[in-house]
């Protein structure tokens, strides 16, 4: 083990352990996913240091590239802000869990530290034909059957994912005509025929979060995107209008000195 590898390990390993604690404490699932990506890239670097460059590359491609992106997609489907409740349903579960995990870590590490391993052989000889070729020779000679089975597992997993997420259509499809008919039918109950109004356009502010004004000058709440309203991120129209009035006053005060400029010259 070269000193360079030592330095790499002792820089990377504490960082990985530290970041992995993010899995335990981070409130939002997205932050957990980011912590996980960091730890997995750390694993890839360690694989390359352990004379397994092929596995290092596969780790980045499969885990950080595919698996974590799949996780992020599911988080997006489920809703990024779906944070878990912190109420304990089983009494004392937190402490029991912490104690069990600590005990597991201490026992495993203790056993490993106390064991005397034979001096490491290293993979220089096995990797003499380059690591991927060496791997392929082992894979295709000793593990052919396992590889075939893994292929079946992969196909089964792909098909099962399709079957599990497939949603059967229970109602007839709603086309343009059906939507129009439903809108007309809803008119007596206070429905609307026209599309929703666009968000407000003001002199100083035309962002998505400000409501438009109707002909009477009242703000239209529906003109702000539904998501912003649920999150409580819309802005009140009165604030914007007050800002506008302030703008009018300021421009009039700026305009005045220009009007009175000849007077000043006369003085």
């Amino acid at each position: 083990m070269s000193p360079g590898e030592d330095v790499l390990f002792w820089v990377l390993a504490p960082l990985m352990v530290l970041v992995s604690f993010g899995l335990l404490v981070a409130r939002k699932a997205v932050h957990v996913a980011i912590c996980m990506v960091f730890v997995m890239i750390g694993f890839a670097v360690l694989y390359i240091a352990l004379e397994a460059p092929f596995l290092g590359v596969v780790q980045i491609v499969v885990y950080t590239g595919a698996v974590m992106m799949l996780f992020l997609f599911v988080l997006m489907l489920v809703g990024v802000d779906a944070s878990s409740s912190l109420v304990e349903t089983i009494r004392g579960q937190r402490w029991i869990g912490v104690i069990l995990a600590l005990g597991l870590g201490v026992i495993l590490s203790g056993v490993v530290v106390q064991t005397v391993f034979p001096p490491a052989v290293g993979l220089a000889e096995a990797n003499s034909v380059t690591n991927p070729v060496g791997l392929a020779r082992v894979l295709m000679s000793d593990y052919v059957l396992a590889m075939e089975v893994v292929g079946i597992v992969l196909i089964t997993a792909a098909v099962s994912a399709l079957v599990l997420t497939h949603k059967r259509r229970l109602t007839p499809a709603r086309g343009q005509k059906e939507i129009a008919d439903a809108k007309v039918a809803a008119l007596p109950q206070g429905g609307r025929l026209t599309p929703l109004a666009a968000p407000g356009v003001y002199a100083q502010n035309n962002a998505m979060d400000t409501p438009a004004l109707d002909p009477q000058g009242r703000p239209i709440a529906e003109s702000v995107s539904r998501v912003l309203r649920i999150r409580g991120q819309q802005r009140e129209a009165t604030d914007v209008l007050l800002g506008e009035h302030g703008l009018v006053e300021r421009t009039s005060t700026v305009a005045e000195p220009e009007g009175s400029a000849p007077d000043e010259e006369e003085r």
Partner: peptide, 22 residues
Amino acid sequence: VLSCILFSVGAATVLLRRNAII
């Protein structure tokens, strides 16, 4: 030893977190 520590952190995550994705 590093792999043992990370394994226990993963086990603690499984035991303690409530969100199925985490």
